[in-house]
């Protein structure tokens, strides 16, 4: 299988400027993380807020440059700090953000939102942009009648579909999903996860899926990376990680996840009675 994205020892430091009374300091947000994802597979990155998972997502999406380390996309080394970002690279990697209320421009119609990536990165004429946007709306389960509406006219789940559609307009090979379902209700979450699975099959998409919800990760991921304070403390196939977590933080994470099965409810009620 071909490797779509590979990171070698990626680091990212943020320099926090000091003031009159405070010395400047350096925050090591990502401290040397390596990974590779094959075509059509899903890598899930798990961790709590502040662990560097979104920083890593920005690096993979070519928004920020890593401070050190190498990033390969489709086997080609990418260094946006030195070479900048070519339109060709932007076509390969796209991102879907967590909050579908914040990531769509409220003054743009859906059709324009979907056409925008094509305007910026390609020379596709307006009529074809329109056709492609219409086709993409159908792909993500919306209709042509939605083309002229504004984001506020949609529910959260529909907006996340629009954000996914926008990310797919350029036919990327890699899609970074930064907590795409954590703002959604349970039933809507199931619909969006199903949609993502369908699209992955259809377009042979590679996903980097960032989440703090282990039940979602167990459902969608092929490989799992657990991050803690900027380091990858656990990295392996989904079954390995879930069956036999090595690091103490992973174990804490599993123990903290609420369990919704009948046996654990029985155990809890028994404990309560005993107390």
């Amino acid at each position: 299988m071909t490797v779509v994205v590979e990171g070698k020892n990626i680091k990212r430091d943020y320099h926090v400027g000091g003031g009159m009374f405070r010395p400047a300091r350096t925050v090591h947000a990502v401290k040397g993380v390596s990974f590779s994802v094959e075509k059509g597979k899903t890598l899930a990155i798990v961790g709590e807020s502040g662990c560097g998972k979104s920083t890593l997502a920005r690096i993979i999406t070519l928004i920020d440059a890593p401070s050190a380390g190498e990033l390969f996309i489709d086997g080609k080394k990418v260094d946006i700090a030195k070479d900048g970002l070519s339109k060709e690279m932007r076509r390969k990697v796209q991102i879907v953000f967590q909050n579908p209320y914040g990531s769509l421009n409220p003054r743009q119609k859906i059709g324009d939102i979907l056409g925008e990536p094509l305007v910026i990165n390609t020379d596709v004429p307006a009529s074809e942009r329109r056709d492609r946007a219409m086709a993409m709306l159908k792909k993500v389960g919306l209709g042509p009648e939605h083309y002229n509406r504004y984001p506020h006219m949609f529910s959260g789940g529909q907006r996340q579909r629009i954000a996914i559609a926008r990310a797919l307009m350029l036919n990327p090979s890699l899609l970074v999903l930064d907590e795409p379902v954590s703002a959604l209700d349970l039933s809507v979450q199931a619909q969006v996860l199903n949609l993502l699975a369908d699209l992955q099959d259809e377009f042979q998409l590679t996903y980097v899926f960032i989440s703090h919800d282990l039940s979602v990760v167990r459902y969608i991921a092929d490989d799992v990376m657990v991050m803690y304070f900027g380091e990858a403390v656990e990295y392996g196939s989904r079954d390995e990680v879930f069956a036999n977590p090595q690091h103490s933080y992973t174990k804490t994470l599993f123990a903290a996840t609420p369990r919704a099965d009948v046996d654990s409810i029985k155990a809890r009620l028994a404990r309560k009675k005993a107390a």
Binding site: S187, Q189, A190, N194, A197, R218, Y219, I220
Partner: peptide
């Protein structure tokens, strides 16, 4: 959790990724 009476509760419980069997999650 053992024996949900209404269809809606059943649907909610089935939509939990924990309970996923096979490739697709049943949606509400």
């Amino acid at each position: 959790f053992e024996n949900p009476k209404s269809n809606y509760t059943r649907a909610l419980l089935a939509a939990l990724p924990d309970n996923a069997t096979g490739d697709r999650l049943p949606t509400v």
